[in-house]
Design a binder for these strands. Sequence first.
DNA 1: AAACGGCGGAACGCAACCGTTACGTCGTAG
DNA 2: CTACGACGTAACGGTTGCGTTCCGCCGTTT
Lengths: 187, 187
Amino acid sequence: MLRGDITVAIRNAVMKELAEVGYGRLSIEAVARRAGVGKTAIYRRWSNKLEMVMEIISDVAERKVPLPDTGSFSGDLSLLLMIVSTALQHRVASQIIPDLMAEAARNPQIAETLQRALRTHQQAVGEKLIGQAVARGELPAGTDPEVAVDLILGPLYWRLAVARQPIEEDYLEKFTVAVTAALRATG
Amino acid sequence: MLRGDITVAIRNAVMKELAEVGYGRLSIEAVARRAGVGKTAIYRRWSNKLEMVMEIISDVAERKVPLPDTGSFSGDLSLLLMIVSTALQHRVASQIIPDLMAEAARNPQIAETLQRALRTHQQAVGEKLIGQAVARGELPAGTDPEVAVDLILGPLYWRLAVARQPIEEDYLEKFTVAVTAALRATG
DNA sequence: AAACGGCGGAACGCAACCGTTACGTCGTAG
DNA sequence: CTACGACGTAACGGTTGCGTTCCGCCGTTT
């Protein structure tokens, strides 16, 4: 019964508004204005700002990234780094993600949603990546996927989403070498 | 002329309020309420929410961390990791920093203040840490301090401030080994 | 003793947004 | 052709916060 095009307009407006003003300052009225839609259309779909944002965000976040399997660990790793760094360089993502992460620190419901949406999926990627490498004999058997994920995503996230420094040409390459060495050392 | 104890009360209130509701939702009136102070006392000191927060934050952020020099790279590194992880585990810091980082993505003035307060200082620590290690022959001469800082702070920040996972007993130890190996490999 | 000035408190007009309601329009299903 | 229901618009009363102003209190300076 609810018109699909209106829903889409609202979803887009929420994403843009989130990127521009953040969750804390996001208002239903601004979303409605931006979407060219009445407030009623929004309240007909969700009862809350929180509920609305959570539904929209988890929808977006659950679009799964294909797990790489290029045949070698360094290949898998560079591909993963490329995918993640590209994603983190998109303006909307790099604004929304840190904002919601910060918000999650004070709102348990947001925290839970993000954990489910990101952590679970990310964990799967890490386990597959490391598992493949261990199976191929490229990493020692005791390699901890959790540590690995920290070592891989941490610096990228730090550089792109926090420090907001550009990634230079050979950075990912250097980084791949460094991470590989690091993981071999922890086994 | 301005009473010092009042100023202190306001500063504390701002920090607590920042941690609880974030910059976006921070209001002068709430700060005044929390500090047990009239709004006039605040406006007598700063003219804006932005100006107020920036002054208070950069004041706090500029308290310099002593640069470690334990005699060996792994010693320096574990000490640094300990200091940073302890800092990031404080409730107020782990709430305020990601929040302001996210805010910085949309407010150039906040971005500039944070860059000056954090990046500059952090860069100095990185350069000293790596410089010492290179001088001692523990790391290859070409080691890039910028990459090193990413490799060291990134995973810690990710784990503590973003993913909000606890640090287990031997994590920092493992991590020290991993980072050392990584940095040797990039030279 | 008197003047000064920072203080808290209270109120100002203004703006934004909340969540809800009433109304009139319009496309579609029956 | 009619009835339904989602739509936009507009308004509601209530809340919150802005930045400013005026007041009376009180400690310090002179």
